[in-house]
Structure formats: structure tokens, C-alpha cells
Design a protein around this nucleic acid. Structure first.
Lengths: 199, 199, 199, 199
DNA sequence: TATGAATGAGAGTTCATTCAT
DNA sequence: AATGAATGAACTCTCATTCAT
């Protein structure tokens, strides 16, 4: 990679990181592009070299962060050697919840914008080299000792429930703080999985 | 009510209705206060007599619309004479889904802003004269032939799931069109209810 | 007229006059709206209360100035009591040329933008209370002792020639300074008039 | 010509042609240098190697196109063998009008910028190797069987009239479509020529 | 000679808010 | 209570120009 390309990447990343910081801190509406470029230390025009507008960088940011989140969970799952679909799904939820509990600004940013699009949003980013989480989910289902009906529906339902309930529980402690709510949620996940079991 | 007070109410309602129309049509970000007052046929300054700013009217609008939605569902439930918690909750979901399917703009408006706050949002509005939906939910639970543990958690989980999944299914047909998704959702609701049954 | 309306008119006129000054001094392209409002002593937003954009004020300005120019010539003609179509047309040209020679910035401004639209441009302005120059031309033709064929063509040809040739002669002295060119131009005007005489 | 020089010429011509296309299509004000270089397939910096700015290329373009137009008319005149100043001038006007009627974008481009500079604009271009139209006009006058006074004035008047009236007639059909206006214009040209005849 | 990433001033425009009437 | 003219800061986005490669 030449000096120029290196510099380009550096600038784009500076914009990306700065935008993330400001979006999570001040909110998207209150973040002006001037703020982003100023903090990133680039000229205003440079922003438009890499992004169409504020919403372009926002979308790319969400896709990127979501991707990161699930990719990390997937990697951890692999390292853990856990078996059994129920346990695996709960492990992933656990892992993601853990990250989001530690980083509520991120949760707020992602969830306010596309709570559920999480899974498919990887499509938006151009960087999904092997990191496609949905594929991994399907693989887990496939490798389980049981067969399942309506896999898409099952996964969708679990993700929606976990995403929506987790959002409120982690961020607002409603109806219970997340640690207290988890048992209920996981019981529910198990029920959903079992209800889709074939035979 | 005097003529003056009548006039006041009329102006406020004009602003309220116009704001709703514009928010659902053009989106909140693209709706300027000028748009609202122009379409409502009042002067710009008048807006500030009744609302603090755009977000004030937005919040009041969401609370009001959510309230309306659940109040209608509650009334219909009463009229139906249906018995049994599972059936009653599903009836309410069915009723709300029906209304939102017919009015996707409303679904989009409410959900984009506080999918889940639905229940508690009645607190925001000053107009909840006997229309508190949450109270009604608790009453239904109370009157059921079974006893339930952790009622709050149960209701929260159901509402989050129905809200989040319904939003995607109705609006985007994901993972299935709403009519096809309902059987899965309702099965899930029954499972959740049963899992909270005491004894 | 109330205080408010008076103030409105004053602001609008300030913008109008300032824009004219700047357009003729610096050119339209180099005149920013900021320049106009700054010099007019009003806020930027006020500009957009009265004009759509820079080109709106430009067009209105051209129409207005052209109108003024011909209205003055028409009035002077009336006062002079001159008879005979040839003499009358030449009187008007003479009068307009005189004004433009004394105000080359105006000539430059008008001509660069719609040399010939001069006559019909009165339509653009809303202020043509009895000042419609084209009507006056037709009246002059009508009152002449001779009859004329293709009056529209005749007037158009004269105006185009006088406008285009006058522009170059007054502004650049090409092919001769205006005073030396006039005899040729007027001879030409007479030829055109005569060539349209009926019978 | 070496390979390098050839390449240079090719780039310059690409810029020239692209600029012309864009200017006539989108207008000068709305054409950015980025547009030109992008469509021409060269780098932004390259533009500044050959032209000072947008107005530099615009002027050179107008001069070039005007030159082309009259050169073609002159060549056609020669080929036609027509005799007599009146007929020759009308032939040239006819030829140019024909080209401009077929290419209104070109008429619009040239006329909006320097209707009348047509003749002398050849001076601007560096390429007038023997193509000087004004010289050719003088030659035609010289070769005519009659003598003429104030030849400059005569030619100027004719060109101004034809240019200005032709512009409006061809582009806007005012006061008549060009084909219907021509008889009047040509009668006028003959009158002007005759009025300059000596003796 | 040719490139094109980077610049940054400044353009036009919007709009929430104020306040004299 | 109601108005709406006026404000002016803040906004997004453009673009001619530079200069290191």
C-alpha cells in the first residue's frame, strides 16, 4: 500500500471513529458535519470524498458496529466449544449483552436505529468477508442433533425478542435489571427453540 | 366552555392533527414548525403558546396515539366477552395489529420512536382518564382462573416480542407477512403465559 | 399603511437597491447574497422572505429597470408633442440611449441579460400600471397619418437593431462612438419604417 | 508530431469537446470543472495545464465555434459562385441561420455570450490561419460592382441586426418563426446595403 | 506531463425562536 | 391570546485550486 493510500485510509478512519464518538455522545441530530471534520482534523470537503452525507456514515457505522459485535460473539462461541443449539444461542446473546452492558452508548446508538436489522445489516457493509452471522446461525441449527421447522421464523423471533427486551432491560432496567431478567429471557429462548423442534 | 377557550382548543387541535399528518407523511426530521403552522392555519408564534418545541409535540402525539390504539382494543375486548388470559392477550394483539396493518404510517411513526414504551407512555399524556392500559392488563391477569408469577416480566416480554416482531412483519413482511407469522407469534405468546403460571 | 407594512416595504426596497448596486458594480456572479444583505443592513433570512433566490431578484430588477427606462422615454415623448411615427420612434431611442450613455452600468446589466426582451419584459413586473410600452408603441403606429403592414415585425426589427447596435456603440464605441453612429442608425430606422408603409 | 505531443493534443481536445457538450447541455453556471474533467477522462489538475479557468475555456470555445460557423459559410459561398454583394451577404446569413436552426444549443451558447462579437471574435483564437471572416467580408465589398461608403458601419449594422433578430426568431419564434421572418430581414439587409452605396 | 486527494472558504438556504404590534 | 416579520446562527454541500507524488 502506497503512502497515498495509507493516508486515505487514515483519514477515512479518522472520520469514521470521530463520527462514532460524536453520534454516541451528542446524538446524531445534534452532531454537525462540521463537528465531525473538526474533531477528525480533516477539511470539510474531505468528508464528502468518503461519505455521501451524515446518514451515509451513520448507516455504515451501524452496520460496521453490529458486524463487529456478532463477529466477536461468534469467535468466542467457537473458542468455547459449547454444543447444543439452545446453549449456543444463549451464549451468543450473553456475549452480545455483555458487550452492550459495558457500552451503553453503543447499545443506544445501534438500537435506536435498527434494533432488529442486526442480522441482515451485515449485507450493508462491504467488509463481510466470512463474517456473515446469519450464515453462522444457520450452520449452528444445521449441526444440532435435532431438526428444526421454520428456522428463519425461529431465529427472527429470538433475535427480535432478545434485542427488544435486552434494549430496555440493559438501558433502563425495565422491567428488571438485565441480570435479573436474563433467566426469564433464556427460559423463553429455550421454549421457542423447543417449539420449533421437528418430529 | 367560553368562546375563547373553545377557540384555544380548536387551535391546539389543529396543530396536533396537522403535526401528526406531516410527521407520518414526511417524517419528523423533514417537518419544520413552519410546515405545521402553515398547514394548521395558525401563526408561527401560536405554536409556542401550546408546545415547547417539535419534540414536545412529537412525544405528546405518540402517547396520544398509543393510548387511542390500546383503548380501542380494550373496549373491543370488553364488548367481545372473551374469557381466558391467553385468548384475551391475543385478542388485544390481534386488534392492535389490525389497526396498524391498516395504518402503516402510524405504525412507522410510533415504532420508530418508542416501540416498547407503548404501555407506560400513557403516563406522559395528561389525558389518561381511566384509559390506563397497563392497569387493564393487570386486571385481566387478576381475573384469570390461574395465578401468575412475575406478572410484570410476563407482560413486558409479550409486549416487546409482539411489538418488535409485529413491526417488522407488518411493515416489511419479514420474516413472513403478518398473517403467516401470527400463528408462530401466538404460539409463542401462549408459551410465555404458561411458563409464568404459578403452581 | 401601517408601521409594519411601511417597514416591510423599506426592507424590500433596501434589498432591491443594494442588489442593483452590487450587480452593476461587481457583476451578478461575484455578488453573494451575503453581500446584498450585509449592505442592505438586513438579516440573511429576510432576503428569502422577499425573493426566491439571486436570480429572482435579478429578473425583477431587470424588468423594473427596463420599465423605468421606457416609461421615462414615453413620458418625455408626450411632453414633447412630437408628431410622426419616424420622429417619435427616434425620439424614444434617443431618450433611452441618452439615459444609458449616462449610465453604462445599467446598460451593461440590462443588455447582458435580455437585450431584446426589453419590450415584453414589462409583463414580468407586477407594477405596469399604465406603463406598458408596447401598447404605447402600437398606439403611436395607430395614430400616424400612414397605415403600416406587419407592425409587430417592424417594431421588433427596430428594437433589435437599436438595442444590439446601441449596446456595442455606447459601451465599446464599435464600430463608431454612439454620437457618430446615430445618423446611420436613424437612417436605417427610417428605411425600416418606410418599408412597412402600406399602399 | 511525437507521441507525447499527440497525447497532449488529445487531452486538450477531449477537454474542449466535453466542455462544449456540457456548456450547451447544462449551461455554463451549472457546469463544474469536475464535470468537465470527469467526462473528458482526465485528471483535475490536467485542466489547469491547458486552461486558466472555466471562463478561459468558454471564451476559446465561443471563438472557435463562431469561426467554424463562418468559415463553413464562406467556403460554401465560394463553392456557390454567387455574385453581387447583397446576394452574397444574404447567402452567408442564410447558411449560418441554417446551421444554427439545426443546432439551437450552439445558438444559445454563442448568443447568450457574445451575440455580436461574432466577427471580431476570430481574433481571440490563435488558429485563424486564413480564416478571418471579416477580411472575407471586406473582400466581397471590394469585388462588388458598386462602391460603398462606411463599409465598417454597414457590415456592423447588418451583422447586429441579423444576429439579434435571428437569435430571437430561431430560438423563440419571435416575432415570427425564422422562415417567415427571413423575407423581412433580407429586405432590410438590401435596404441597408443600398443606403451605403456611393454616388 | 499527469495525477487526484486534499483543501477550506464560502455559497445558498433553512428554521427555531423572539417580540413588537 | 394571537400574530407574523425579522432574525442570524447553523446547516449542508460545492468547487476552484493546490501540490506531493
Amino acid at each position: 500500500m502506497g503512502k497515498v493510500d495509507e493516508n486515505k485510509k487514515k483519514k477515512k478512519e479518522a472520520l469514521f471513529n470521530t463520527a462514532y464518538d460524536l453520534f454516541t455522545t451528542k446524538g446524531i441530530n445534534s452532531t454537525a458535519i462540521s463537528d465531525i471534520v473538526e474533531n477528525a482534523g480533516v477539511a470539510k470537503g474531505t468528508f464528502y470524498l468518503y461519505f455521501k452525507d451524515k446518514y451515509d456514515i451513520k448507516n455504515k457505522l451501524i452496520a460496521h458496529k453490529t458486524n463487529e459485535l456478532f463477529a466477536a460473539a461468534g469467535d468466542a462461541l467457537e473458542a468455547s466449544g459449547i454444543r447444543g443449539l439452545e446453549e449456543q444461542l444463549i451464549f451468543i446473546i450473553e456475549h452480545v449483552f455483555h458487550a452492550l452492558t459495558a457500552n451503553k452508548a453503543l447499545l443506544n446508538f445501534i438500537s435506536k436505529n435498527l434494533v432488529m436489522g442486526a442480522l441482515r445489516s451485515t449485507l450493508l457493509t462491504g467488509e463481510n468477508s466470512g463474517s456473515d452471522i446469519y450464515e453462522k446461525f444457520l450452520m449452528l441449527v444445521d449441526q444440532d442433533e435435532h431438526d428444526y421447522n421454520d428456522v428463519d421464523v425461529m431465529l427472527f423471533t429470538i433475535v427480535e425478542l432478545a434485542g427488544s427486551a435486552g434494549y430496555n432491560s440493559i438501558l433502563y432496567g425495565e422491567p428488571l435489571p438485565i441480570e435479573e431478567y436474563k433467566p426469564f429471557l433464556y427460559r423463553c429462548v429455550r421454549l421457542i427453540v423447543k417449539s420449533h423442534r421437528a418430529g
